[in-house]
Amino acid sequence: MDIHLAPDSAEAAAHVPHGDADHAHPTWSTYWKVALILTVITVGEVWAYYLPSFVASRAFVPTLLVMSALKFVIVVMFYMHLKYDHKLFRALFTGPLLIAATTLIALLFLFGHLTVLHH
């Protein structure tokens, strides 16, 4: 979905990556399918929340985290079209995200709170 406008000058043209305009773009039907998948996962999450036996099990928290991560990745890859975009954008997003996520895990360890992941 990246928009590739014609460069203003020959110099700029030399810097435009060749073949970028040929990236496969998601279609409207892809967007609808993604929305449907996101809705189904969300319904699944809420449904799991209301199952006392599942909430009491050790699988509850990991399952919710996986479902949430799946939704996160789907939106980033398809709606934010990172799947189709330049690698630099991927690095600009995943770099800080990884640093922040590592900090989060380290803080939870430090404060003895990682039990939240074990329920």
């Binding site: 928290v61 949430s68 934010m80």
Partner: peptide, 19 residues
């Protein structure tokens, strides 16, 4: 806008659903 959405995806699970 999509970023605001993905942040909420995380908040919804971590704050509202995980007890």
């Amino acid at each position: 806008w999509h970023f605001v959405d993905v942040v909420w995806i995380a908040i919804f699970t971590l704050v509202y659903l995980i007890r």
